[in-house]
């Protein structure tokens, strides 16, 4: 029997009164990969994550972690680490005590608390009350709480919020190292540049519905849909393409940008006996792909 995917949603729907926050969403993420979860504000990302984590009840459909609803996990803290909003701490409790509470409830040894604080570089400020923490420190504390049980699956909701550039770099390196060790990461973010640097694949939702779920490279190539071709005989190639009804614009060093897939460009060049030095699918940036799929909503 095949192993259940780390995270899976099937026909997941959530309605708040007359508002549909998530509408029949279905996807499953692959193990050992970083999957970005993107969508404009209000698209339903946070609601989806909270349904996966058992915090919000679906109106219909299923949200599964390792094949079962979060509520039915035997040992949730050791199965999945979750980073929620950074403000979700008691302001008068110290960072270390917050972790001690989680560790006590989950039956995790106290030594792990200090080790995790060390890992997120909060040891020096661990005994200070959370109300004195910066937003970035709270985010690190959230990450520490997620890592307490040493899970192989991380679900992160906007973890880069409030982090300074050094913190963002730390988080990026940490997540890469986590995924490199076989861990699975599902990360929502509105910072597209971060996702572009991190993710292997992306899930994009818009107006509560799924609009894309594919590897990042495939998405950016598909969205652009064109071809970059370079030839020492670029002018003749452009005429050849024009004769076939294909538009091409000239660039530098014999480069053409062609509004057709690489296969058609290659066939046209071969038919005319034109030498090519480069032929590749044109990639859009993640931002361009995102904006195209979401109609420009951010």
């Amino acid at each position: 029997m095949p192993e259940a995917p780390p995270l899976e949603v099937r026909g997941l729907t959530k309605r708040f009164g007359s508002t549909t926050a998530v509408d029949e969403l279905s996807f499953a993420i692959e193990p050992g990969r970083i999957t970005g979860f993107l969508g404009p504000n209000g698209a339903g990302k946070t609601t989806t994550l909270r349904m996966l984590l058992g915090l919000v009840h679906p109106s219909a459909g299923q949200a599964l972690v390792r094949g079962v609803p979060y509520r039915k996990l035997d040992d949730p803290v050791r199965t999945v680490g979750a980073v929620l909003e950074a403000s979700s701490f008691h302001p008068a409790r110290s960072g270390r005590n917050h972790l001690r509470v989680v560790a006590t409830a989950a039956g995790i040894p106290r030594e792990r608390v200090d080790a995790t604080l060390e890992l997120v570089e909060l040891s020096d400020t661990a005994r200070r009350r959370v109300r004195t923490y910066s937003l970035g420190m709270r985010q690190r504390l959230s990450v520490a709480a997620a890592l307490l049980g040493d899970p192989q699956l991380l679900v992160l909701d906007e973890p880069a919020n409030g982090l300074d550039p050094e913190g963002i770099r730390w988080l990026r390196n940490f997540l890469r190292s986590f995924a490199g060790g076989g861990g699975t990461v599902f990360i929502s973010s509105h910072v597209l540049g971060e996702i572009a640097q991190l993710a292997d694949e992306v899930v994009i939702i818009h107006k509560a519905r799924l609009v894309a779920h594919e590897p990042l490279a495939a998405l950016t190539a598909r969205t652009a849909g064109g071809t970059i071709v370079r030839s020492p005989d670029a002018n003749r190639l452009r005429e050849q393409l024009a004769a076939g009804g294909i538009e091409a614009t000239s660039g530098e060093d014999g480069e053409l940008r062609v509004a057709a897939p690489p296969e058609r460009v290659g066939e046209a060049a071969a038919a005319a006996g034109i030498v090519l030095h480069e032929l590749r699918a044109e990639s859009a940036s993640l931002e361009e792909a995102f904006l195209e799929l979401t109609g420009g909503d951010e």
Partner: peptide, 14 residues
């Protein structure tokens, strides 16, 4: 009020 109930239910979803 403090938003800590989310953490509580993550650790103990029942």
């Amino acid at each position: 009020a403090n938003g800590t109930i989310g953490h509580t239910f993550l650790v103990a979803p029942v």
